[in-house]
């Protein structure tokens, strides 16, 4: 503790008295300018601003530059950098062990849409209560720039190779598969991404955020559809994402003709000001249709596409005891002598 009057200005803290420093991670070893660095930054800010205790968070990832970035935010949270494409199962297991924890998964487009596709869709289908961040750069960064399954048709690699297969739209897929909060953003859009992340933290169920996160080393050139430049030119906002935390004043006026208000699980509000005609973020089929259509038009649609606050999340569905399974006392998990005697009797 310093007694010198020079540092008199108290450090800024959040609602639980922690500083932004308490949410920092190790120094990034990713390329300077990599979109993943910005996403990590936005993530830690969002958790700081939402006042979530870092020790209450489990961060889980697969393998890739994106998955590595787990180390670059929130070192006071419990982290598990697992194997390629299998983050969903690890996260599911961890959440079953302790449903009172918050989980955030970080994955890449290769990690999710190719090797991990099987686990990805089943996580969505179960509506596992976690935030799934897909840092989407259209390539495999860590193995030096091969196309991923989210690369657009006609997109060109630095080597001149052109992608001739259709992309998988992970957002459309997620909506169909059962995710209850689905959106797309861009690592370079601080305002939109921050609001979306905070809303994601407030939601209970699977949040899938497809965040276009350019790979400056292998996919940021002309001819790429996942470059900073391309995003700046083609980013088409479906809605303007606003977030009002539960402790804030929600009396702020809004026009119900142009703005949709969704109350999230923790009492906070997601305010989506419509920028697209005839679109409501609670309409599953409408959301999928819109994604298909904008794709045809060559736009990269961003914003919150779909929110469903009614569906039961997987942990609730299993009707587990209130305490985490991980710390139940022995008398709650080991049945009595009488139980064994009864079982033995039945086999005699």
């Amino acid at each position: 503790m310093s007694t010198t009057p020079v540092s008199s200005a108290p450090a800024k803290t959040n609602s639980i008295g922690l500083q932004i420093l308490d949410y920092r991670g190790s120094k990034s070893t990713l390329c300077a300018g990599c979109g993943h660095n910005a996403v990590a930054e936005r993530l830690l800010e969002a958790f700081y601003e939402m006042g979530v205790q870092p020790e209450r968070i489990m961060k889980i990832s697969g393998i890739g530059c994106s998955s590595k970035s787990l180390a670059y935010f929130m070192s006071r949270s419990f982290s598990f950098n697992s194997v390629h494409g299998r983050m969903p199962s690890v996260a599911t297991g961890a959440l079953l062990a302790n449903k009172t924890m918050r989980a955030i998964g970080v994955s890449g487009d290769g990690d999710t849409a190719s090797i991990g596709m099987g686990q990805f869709v089943h996580l969505l289908r179960r509506n596992v209560p976690m935030i799934y961040i897909l840092e989407d750069n259209g390539v495999y960064g860590l193995t030096k720039g091969q196309f991923s399954a989210t690369a657009d048709i006609g997109s060109k690699l630095k080597t001149g190779v052109v992608n001739d297969l259709p992309p998988i739209d992970v957002c459309a897929l997620a909506i169909q598969m059962g995710a209850t909060f689905v959106g797309r953003s861009f690592s370079g859009d601080k305002k939109q991404l921050s609001a979306m992340l905070k809303a994601a933290i407030a939601h209970k169920g699977t949040v899938l955020l497809d965040i276009i996160s350019p790979c400056v080393t292998f996919n940021d050139h002309d001819g790429s559809t996942k470059s900073y430049k391309y995003m700046k030119e083609h980013d088409e906002l479906v809605n303007e994402t606003g977030f009002i935390a539960s402790h804030e004043d929600i009396a702020v006026e809004y026009d119900p003709n142009t703005t949709v208000d969704v109350q999230l699980h923790d009492g906070s509000h997601l305010r989506l000001r419509k920028l697209h005609e005839d679109y409501t973020p609670t309409d599953k089929a409408g959301a999928v249709n819109m994604l298909m259509e904008t794709h045809e038009k060559g736009e990269v649609l961003t914003g919150v596409f779909y929110v469903n606050t009614q569906e039961l999340d997987f942990a609730s569905r299993l009707n587990m005891v209130d305490d985490p399974l991980s710390t139940l006392s022995a008398d709650r998990v080991r049945p009595s002598r009488e139980v064994l005697a009864e079982l033995m009797q039945a086999q005699s």
Binding site: M58, I60, F78, F80, S82, V83, R86, P88, S89, V90, A91, T92, G93, A94, L95, L96, A97, N98, M101, Q119, P324, L325, S326, T327
Partner: peptide
């Protein structure tokens, strides 16, 4: 994967 995720988290 679930087994290891759960084991890691204390189950």
């Amino acid at each position: 994967g679930m087994v290891l995720g759960a084991g890691w988290a204390g189950a």
